[in-house]
Amino acid sequence: MSDKENGQGMSRRQFLTYTLMGTGAFMAAGILTPMLRFAVDPALKRTSSAGKVEVGKVDDFGPDYKLVKFKVKIKDGWHEEEAEKSAYIRNKDGKILALSPICKHLGCQVQWNTSPDRPNHFYCPCHNGFYDENGINVPGTPPQAPLDEYEVEVKDGKLLLSLTPKPRGGA
């Protein structure tokens, strides 16, 4: 590879090699940049989760949790569909809490107050996970984070939820 003729400057062969590498890099960039950006586009695209969905009247909800199912329009690329989602909602002491029933451990559906071991807890039957009545995970059980929470809004006596639940810190 190294055929420097007299030790100073660069040889013709080296110059040609560098020029080859330069133009080669240019062509590779020209071809691959659009393709790579194209490939990773979903990762960089901001998903719009704006908007609210109505789930019922505020008066329907009492201090005990109630499971409601509601439909959300989902845009998956070119495919739009209505997906069914659900939330545990309670209205206690004038504060409305809407929790996603998806267990933070492995994504099973949690149930309210069905385990005799711990009454008034969310119970995940898959791996015996527990969350307390505020949806905070009980230490020592599999889940490592509290249940996700929907943003709530009250409008004309109707309860609106955000389209996607947000994770909460804590525990």
């Binding site: 062969r13 040609l16 090699t17 020029t19 080859l20 133009t23 062509m27 071809i31």
Partner: peptide, 20 residues
């Protein structure tokens, strides 16, 4: 390599730019 390939690549670069 490298002399002739470089010439071919020059042509390839021109073609690629026109193509893009």
């Amino acid at each position: 390599y490298p002399n002739f390939l470089l010439k071919e690549w020059m042509i390839a670069v021109v073609s690629l730019v026109a193509f893009l």
